[in-house]
Design a binder for these strands. Structure first.
Length: 362
DNA sequence: CATTCGTGGGA
DNA sequence: TTCCCAAGAAT
């Protein structure tokens, strides 16, 4: 039995300096050398967007938000509606609602500055264990143990942790805390995440290129892909429903706002039946917002995190004066990009009005 | 502690 | 095609 050498921060930081990734919210080593500090607003915004979301998907949204709202004060002053429209398509819409609340708290209760401690940050809406540590470390150079999915994978492999997630999380966080250096804690956190994203990947990790390949117990065990061990996941149920695309004689589409909480909370939708109320083979037309010449336009499928949705889509040309009072509002079909439409709704609208969006999802 | 929250891209 | 899942938080 060989003595396991202890993983240390220095080799990782050296690797990080050689493989810096140029991301819009990140300060390059050259800039850092000149004393440029990261903008806490940028770090916070990017970290919230990056929650369960890929770097590739975040880049365009980050640019849009910073362009539209250059400071946290600007975001705090923005109409919530505008924030939801800007966030549409990125998913997990509670993040957008909490983003706005957090900006307001920072602007109006903290004098426009983010708290610099984990504890202070974590008290804000939408900031939990991960984001509070990440912002404290990256934006404020605080020694905080930053653990996301990447770090979990790296740590579970370094120490060949057999206990399944999420139960093993506290033990893994203790390992991270022990490794985090007082010098450059933010760079260490980003280095761990970069390592997980580019080298210590879920499948086929590039162990030959890893700065930890001399101390990794998973590599020594010859099956690094086995880690991290996770609890088995359950299957996704299917929910059925029907969506109704009503267009008036002036080319306006009937939309309505979803409740503020829950699935797609605060986002815009077309009228639909309750999801699961429709049995396959039924039209669902009896649940239309009003009687009209509803024509079937096929079915769209959208996969959410915990269920699959199949919506039968129906279209009708209506005269607004004939349908009476409806629960909702009418928006020009030519300006749907100005609405907070989640992807599932864009799919349904596109099935009925193929020209509504430049791409299927807008 | 388990569940509820989107989406799109890559293997 | 199907599966996996990506810089998680709130309840």
């Amino acid at each position: 039995m060989t003595i396991q050498k202890k993983p240390a921060a220095e080799p990782l930081l050296a690797w990080y300096d050689r493989h810096h990734r140029d991301l819009p919210w990140r300060i390059s080593p050259a800039m850092a050398k000149r004393g440029v500090k990261p903008d806490p607003y940028h770090i916070w915004l990017s970290e919230v967007m990056l929650q369960q979301t890929t770097v590739a998907a975040v880049k365009a949204y980050f640019a849009k938000f910073v362009g539209q709202w250059p400071t946290v004060a600007d975001l705090a002053a923005a109409p919530s509606e505008d924030v939801m429209v800007a966030w549409a398509g990125l998913g997990y819409y509670a993040r957008a609602r909490n983003l706005k609340k957090c900006a307001e708290a920072v602007a109006f209760e903290h004098g426009g500055r983010f708290p610099e401690t984990e504890e202070g940050l974590k008290s804000l809406p939408g900031i939990g264990d991960y984001t509070s540590a990440a912002v404290a470390a990256i934006a404020f150079n605080r020694n905080a143990a930053v653990m996301d999915g990447n770090v979990e994978r790296v740590i579970s492999r370094l120490y060949a942790i057999d206990a399944p997630l999420p139960g093993s999380k506290p033990a893994m966080k203790a390992r991270v805390a022990a490794m985090t250096p007082d010098d450059r804690p933010g760079d260490f956190a980003q280095a761990m995440m970069d390592l997980g994203a580019t080298i210590c990947t879920p499948k086929r990790p590039a162990c030959a290129l890893c700065p930890f390949n001399d101390v990794c117990m998973a590599l020594e065990s010859d099956d690094p892909e086995r880690f991290p061990v996770k609890a088995a996941k359950k299957e996704k149920p299917v929910r059925l429903g029907a969506a109704f695309i009503a267009v008036d004689t002036d080319g306006h589409l009937l939309l309505r706002r979803r409740p503020e909480s829950g699935l797609l909370g605060g986002m815009t939708e077309v009228p639909t039946t309750a999801w699961t109320s429709r049995v396959d083979g039924e039209t669902g037309v009896e649940a239309a917002p009003f009687a009209a010449g509803w024509q079937a336009c096929g079915t769209v499928t959208h996969v959410f995190t915990h269920f699959e949705l199949r919506l039968g889509v129906y279209r009708a040309q209506v005269s607004r004066g004939d349908v009476g009072a409806v629960h909702g509002f009418w928006a020009p079909v030519t300006n749907l990009d100005g609405e907070a439409l989640p992807t599932a709704m864009k799919k349904a609208i596109a099935a009925a009005i193929p020209t509504a969006f430049s791409t299927p999802k807008g």
